[in-house]
Simulated assay, not measured.
Amino acid sequence: MKIVVVGGTGLIGSQVVTLLREAGHEAVPAAPSTGVDTLTGEGLAEVLEGADVVVDVSNSPSFDTEPALDFFTRSARTLFAAEKEAGVRHHVALSIVGVDQVPGYGYYEAKVAQENAVRASGVPYSLVRATQFFEFVAPVMDMSTRGTEVRLPSTRLRPIASADVAAVVAEAAQGAPSHGIRNIAGPEVFGLDRLGELTLAAEPDGRTVVTDEEAGLFAGMPDVLTGDDSAHLAATRFEEWLKRS
């Protein structure tokens, strides 16, 4: 099959492309750096010619409400119009566990709008919702650092390795459209502050974690980011991943 991976040069997308190629498919990364822009439509018709499946793992360059909402809704309109023209038979999109249970958080609301666009598109689809990636912990810590203190809330997460996410997305792309949601998560639940402590224990840099329930992106989040009993639990554990990273 020809499978076009939108966002195919990023953290998840590049791994999806590799897995699909190893499985014998023609996997084509689509991103501004490859001449494809889902906001303007530049290069879309060309890259989608003969495509059977589109995987969308692209991301907004901003977590702010308006830019994120504009990115996800405008790119969805442009992408689905091009997919219908090309006769694409399956659209796979990556979203976030608990995304529709976090009112008032603009980035999550933008992702819900993207999911709604997928459902309303008329293109057969599969939605994969993942918990936060292991790779996201260090950047969150950097954003929350004040001097030598990393101020983090104890918000509960069940983080997952990006490689495990990529494997499930690639599997979905090779299967039939589910017209539903598959939730995936890591094997362990941690407070975000504990994830920070484990990260610094593995690679000390002079900083210490201070628990602050009002600090950072995840402050005040409802307890919905770990998934429920329906979530598929990946095998990779955070501390094992830290040792290899």
Results as ranks from 00 to 15, higher is better:
residue 14 S to C: 08
residue 234 A to V: 09
residue 167 A to C: 01
residue 96 I to G: 03
residue 107 Y to L: 15
residue 188 E to H: 04
residue 3 I to R: 07
residue 92 V to K: 08
residue 55 V to A: 04
residue 82 A to R: 00
residue 110 A to E: 09
residue 129 R to L: 02
residue 244 R to N: 13
residue 163 A to N: 09
residue 95 S to V: 07
residue 34 T to S: 10
residue 184 I to P: 07
residue 210 V to L: 14
residue 201 A to H: 03
residue 222 P to A: 05
residue 206 G to S: 06
residue 150 V to A: 08
residue 174 Q to C: 12
residue 146 R to F: 06
residue 88 V to A: 02
residue 137 V to A: 07
residue 189 V to K: 04
residue 99 V to G: 04
residue 188 E to G: 03
residue 173 A to S: 01
residue 150 V to R: 09
residue 33 S to T: 15
residue 6 V to H: 12
residue 57 V to W: 07
residue 160 I to M: 10
residue 78 T to A: 07
residue 205 D to A: 09
residue 228 D to K: 01
residue 193 D to P: 08
residue 119 R to F: 12
residue 127 L to H: 07
residue 76 A to E: 02
residue 113 A to C: 13
residue 50 G to H: 00
residue 191 G to R: 07
residue 73 T to W: 15
residue 151 R to H: 07
residue 195 L to N: 09
residue 183 N to Q: 14
residue 81 A to I: 05
residue 25 H to Y: 10
residue 42 E to C: 09
residue 22 E to I: 01
residue 239 E to Q: 14
residue 130 A to T: 05
residue 192 L to P: 12
residue 155 T to D: 03
residue 2 K to R: 15
residue 89 R to D: 01
residue 243 K to M: 15
residue 122 G to E: 08
residue 48 L to N: 04
residue 40 T to Q: 10
residue 233 L to P: 11
residue 118 V to C: 13
residue 85 E to W: 13
residue 170 A to E: 07
residue 175 G to S: 14
residue 238 F to A: 00
residue 117 A to L: 11
residue 29 P to K: 10
residue 124 P to N: 08
residue 156 R to T: 01
residue 37 D to E: 02
residue 230 S to M: 07
residue 11 L to I: 03
residue 192 L to C: 08
residue 204 P to A: 10
residue 11 L to P: 02
residue 54 V to H: 12
residue 189 V to D: 00
residue 245 S to W: 14
residue 85 E to I: 15
residue 121 S to L: 00
residue 97 V to Y: 00
residue 135 E to Q: 10
residue 13 G to R: 05
residue 207 R to N: 05
residue 70 D to R: 15
residue 199 T to P: 04
residue 128 V to C: 05
residue 98 G to Y: 08
residue 218 F to K: 06
residue 204 P to V: 13
residue 46 E to C: 04
residue 173 A to R: 00
residue 94 L to T: 06
residue 44 L to I: 05
residue 182 R to M: 14
residue 55 V to Y: 06
residue 109 E to F: 02
residue 102 V to H: 11
residue 201 A to P: 06
residue 187 P to G: 11
